[in-house]
Simulated scan of single mutants.
Amino acid sequence: MVEQPESGALAASLAELKAYLRIETGAQDAVLAGLLRSAAALCEQFIGQWLIARAARETVAGDGGWQRLSARPVAAIETVEAVDADGVAEMLPIDAYAIDIDAAGDGWVRSTRAGDGRRLAVRYQAGLAAELNGLPEALRQGIVRLAAEHFVARGGESAPPAVVSALWRPFRRMRLA
C-alpha cells in the first residue's frame, strides 16, 4: 500500500478550464477546481501513472528479492528503512539494500540482508512532471475536456467523450498480473 499526501497541485489550470467553458466570473471556481482534481485522478487511474510529482512511502517485503514500487514513474528513491514486527523503523546503511529505477520508470528495492524478518519502508518521489506545465499537452487537454463534460452534465448522465481516452491512450501503462 502506497501512502501519499494529497497533491495540492492541479494537473490543468483553472484558467484553462474556465476559458474552455467560456466562464468569466469566479462564482464557480471551487466547483471547477474539484472537477479538475476528479478528472486528474481519473486520468492517473487510466494511464497507470502519477501526473504531478509527489512523495510516497511504501512498505515492501525485505526477503532479499527485488520488490517493485507501486507508484510510477519513480523519479527518486530517497530513503530505505527496516521495519520490525513491532513497527519500529531503523534507517539502513547503504550496503544493506539495493535500489534501481529502470528505463520504464519502475522503482525497485531489495534488502541485501534478507532473513532478519524485517520489511522495508521506502520513501520516494514519483510523477510524470514537477508541475502542470511539464505535463504532455494531450494529458492536460483530456483533463480539461473531461472536467468540462462533468460541469456541463451536472447531475445528468453522460458518457465521457471518446476523445478523452484517445488523448490519454498513448500514455497508458498497464501491468500484467
Rank of each mutant, 00 (worst) to 15 (best):
A19M: 08
G156Y: 07
T59K: 04
D95G: 01
M1H: 07
Q49H: 03
R123P: 09
G64T: 06
L139F: 06
Q67W: 08
M174N: 12
E44H: 06
S165P: 00
I47P: 01
R169V: 08
A55I: 09
D100P: 05
I99G: 06
S111K: 02
R154P: 00
R54N: 03
F151C: 01
A76L: 12
V122P: 03
E16C: 00
S158K: 11
L35H: 01
R154N: 13
G134A: 07
I23E: 09
S7K: 05
L42N: 14
M91A: 15
W66S: 03
E149A: 11
D29A: 13
H150D: 12
S111N: 12
Q45C: 08
G105H: 07
L132M: 09
R145Y: 03
A71L: 07
A147N: 05
V152N: 10
R169W: 06
G155T: 02
G26Y: 12
R172T: 08
P161G: 12
P160E: 04
A159F: 06
L17V: 02
V152W: 15
P5S: 15
A129D: 01
A40R: 01
R68H: 07
R175E: 13
G26V: 06
D116I: 11
A129M: 04
R72S: 15
E16S: 12
R57T: 15
L167E: 00
Q4R: 10
G8S: 14
D86T: 13
L42W: 05
R72V: 06
L135K: 00
T59H: 00
A55N: 14
W108P: 09
A114W: 12
E131K: 04
Q45L: 15
G34M: 10
R72F: 07
E16H: 07
L128V: 03
V31D: 10
R113M: 13
G48A: 08
A148F: 04
A39V: 05
I99A: 09
V74S: 05
L135A: 04
W50F: 05
F46R: 08
V164Y: 00
R123G: 10
E16A: 06
G48H: 03
V83F: 05
L176D: 14
A76P: 00
S7L: 06
V164C: 04
I143N: 02
H150S: 14
A41L: 11
S7P: 04
A55S: 11
A11I: 04
V164M: 00
V152E: 15
Y20D: 01
L120F: 06
W108A: 13
L139I: 13
P160Y: 00
G155S: 10
G48D: 05
V109C: 05
L146I: 07
L120Y: 10
M1L: 10
G107S: 06
L69Y: 07
V83L: 01
M91G: 05
D63I: 14
A129Q: 02
G64W: 09
Q125G: 05
R113S: 11
E6V: 12
A159Y: 06
T112K: 15
V88A: 15
A148K: 10
L120K: 02
P5Y: 10
M174E: 15
F46G: 02
N133R: 09
V109S: 07
S7D: 10
A11F: 00
R72I: 10
L35I: 02
S7N: 02
P170C: 04
A121R: 14
H150Y: 11
E24H: 12
P93N: 11
